[in-house]
Design a protein around this nucleic acid. Structure first.
Length: 423
DNA sequence: TCTGGGGTCCTAGGACCC
DNA sequence: TCTGGGGTCCTAGGACCC
């Protein structure tokens, strides 16, 4: 038996935790560079503000009450997410953090009334973190998603909680659910499913698995079985190690100067190194890519990347920065206006499990590097944010994101701690 | 004027091995 | 006239998730 706990309108709810006056008002959170809508409060959804649309287009047609608009504040969302998960971990021994705002719990063998349990989860998370959540219980992950979805849409008599096992008519519930509303089915797969003549989640659940396998591979077959109540997806409480690490940004403005692009790429590589060490992994190669504005119809289009293979796997930011700059030199063309760049570490291995070299040119200096990186990471942790940087990061900052409406880092920066006044 | 940033899994096909 | 059988590994591309 699985539980899926999902935060309601997570980013918008995070903004409300420290701005309770926003309760009941439409709230919207934008992507980096204040580009697209990535989160909406219930009131914002009711105004018809669509997910994923560029804000400047949404803003034009807006009628009705004023909308509170925020740049995304990942320091805040990340910290609140950690707290929510911590509260939920008390409810079951096995928990899988599926994304920043949702987790699965394995409740097999947990006795008692699940609906009461779910209500207690929601009450405690709200009380201890300020974040509202919905809870779905079911024998498979896919059905838990369905149950959660229904609870969120107010289709459960128990409010924010729905237990699949207590549904009076689960077949009717699935019959009313469109294939595209099933977790794992989007546009393309939806089309394929409909071409098979399957027009609902129930049809999918009752279809012959061999037909599903034939039409949509093992992915679709699993979906059908999961909807039918046979669990095919296990709880992954030990997160598998990452296979790649990427850091990329759209620049705040178009950039032509080589130094500005170099500064961006250096910053991305250094950040990728931090992530790498955080996961105790090493990179065998570094890919640098950059591109012009894909929405610009006039100017020349350019998208290119280059991969530098390292002699030895490393988690040394200095080496990553150097390799990223080498890659950049291969693909940078003067005279273009760049809009985005990124650094990808495509091929990771675990620290301590490196492939040795038969003919090594450079002597290994792992102990010294490890001490240096540890020192670097310690200095760059709060409160002195990014106190130490690579020189090449400093030769330009034109790439920095536009974030005009960012709320304070209430939880992660002493200087931005919320202040309460007592009269 | 203005358009995100991460990830994963699966499959097919090519290249190669013995 | 006629040309095997069984594998692995890698990569690119498609599809999906939040």
């Amino acid at each position: 038996m699985f539980a899926l706990v999902d935060c309601n309108n997570f980013y918008a709810s995070c903004e409300r935790v420290f701005r309770p006056a926003l309760e009941g008002r439409p709230v919207v959170v934008l992507s980096n560079n204040d580009g697209c809508v990535v989160a909406r409060s219930a009131e914002a959804k009711a105004l018809g503000i669509p997910m994923g649309k560029p804000w400047f287009q949404v803003e034009r047609g807006l009628r009705g009450p004023p909308v509170a608009v925020f740049s995304s504040n990942y320091a805040l969302y990340g910290d609140l997410s950690r707290r929510v998960m911590q509260v939920l971990a008390d409810f079951g021994p096995r928990l899988e953090i599926y994304s920043i705002d949702e987790c699965f719990l394995d409740l097999s063998g947990v006795p008692g009334d699940r609906t009461a349990l779910g209500l207690e989860m929601a009450r405690r998370v709200k009380r201890w973190t300020g974040i509202p959540v919905s809870v779905g219980f079911a024998p498979t992950k896919t059905l838990a998603k369905v149950a959660n979805h229904m609870a969120k849409r107010g289709q459960s008599p128990a409010g924010p909680v729905l237990d699949w096992a207590r549904l009076p008519d689960p077949r009717a519930t699935l019959a009313a659910l469109a294939p595209e509303d099933v977790w794992g089915i989007a546009g393309r797969l939806g089309e394929r499913v409909r071409r098979l003549g399957l027009a609902s989640a129930l049809a999918l659940a009752e279809a012959d698995p061999r037909v599903l396998r034939q039409a949509g591979g093992v992915v679709l077959e699993r979906l059908g079985r999961e909807l039918g109540g046979t669990a095919c997806l296990a709880l992954e409480d030990v997160p598998p190690p990452r296979k790649q690490i990427m850091v990329s940004r759209t620049f705040g403005e178009r950039i032509g100067r080589a130094e500005d692009v170099q500064a961006a790429v250096a910053a991305f590589a250094a950040r990728a190194g931090e992530k790498l060490r955080c996961q105790r992994r090493r990179a065998r190669a570094v890919t640098t890519f950059l591109q012009t504005d894909p929405f610009d119809r006039e100017g020349p289009r350019y998208f290119n990347g280059a991969t530098i293979v390292l002699e030895r796997a490393t988690c040394d930011s200095g080496q990553l920065v150097r390799a990223a700059q080498q890659g950049l030199a291969h693909v940078f063309r003067p005279g273009l206006a760049y809009r985005k760049a990124g650094v990808l570490l495509p091929d990771l291995e675990s620290a301590g499990a490196e492939q040795g070299l038969l003919f090594s040119a450079a002597p290994a200096d792992d102990a010294r590097t490890a001490r240096l990186m540890e020192c670097l990471d310690r200095l760059n942790r709060a409160p002195a944010h990014r106190a130490v940087r690579y020189a090449s990061e400093l030769c330009g900052d034109a790439w920095r994101m536009r974030q005009r409406r960012k709320s304070p880092a209430y939880l992660t920066d002493w200087a931005e701690l919320p202040v309460a006044w007592a009269h």
